[in-house]
Amino acid sequence: MEKRLVKLTVNGVAHERAVAPAATLLEVLREELFLTGTKRGCDVGDCGCCTVLLDGAPVLSCLVLALEADGAEIRTIEGVANGNQLHPVQQAFVDHGAIQCGFCTPSMVLNAVHLLDTNPSPDAAAVKTCVSGTICRCTGYTKIEQAVHAAARACTKTP
């Protein structure tokens, strides 16, 4: 099990790491790059908490071998705000009480950021689908969906 070099651009920063084939992207992010905003809720693809954007699309980092992400652009929750300026999705989550324990929040936010990037005025079904890939045990999803809708409105107002 030789380690191999993997090149990742994470939140705009280029990294090179030697990793074992058995390492997942989630492990590399959390344990090597200390980007602990990406959460590990189940490690087998069921909860969605480990979502990151890989070349722009939300994926489950617990199911992605780190070597599979070689050369990819990764965006984690740490890379969503612009300095101290929250992304409209983040701001909407804060304002609408879409956050309770916050463990699902990184995934919910990244999924919503991707949704609004690809579909600026999503309908109710699109928002539900976007939320449906992550389990939230605290909020019952209601405020999360409201926040995504609000963020969509905010984004279209200030292009």
Partner: peptide, 16 residues
């Protein structure tokens, strides 16, 4: 009123 820790949670800074 939003939670006091909400910004930390939404930016991934919150440590569990």
């Amino acid at each position: 009123t939003p939670q006091v820790g909400a910004v930390d949670k939404v930016t991934g800074r919150a440590r569990y």
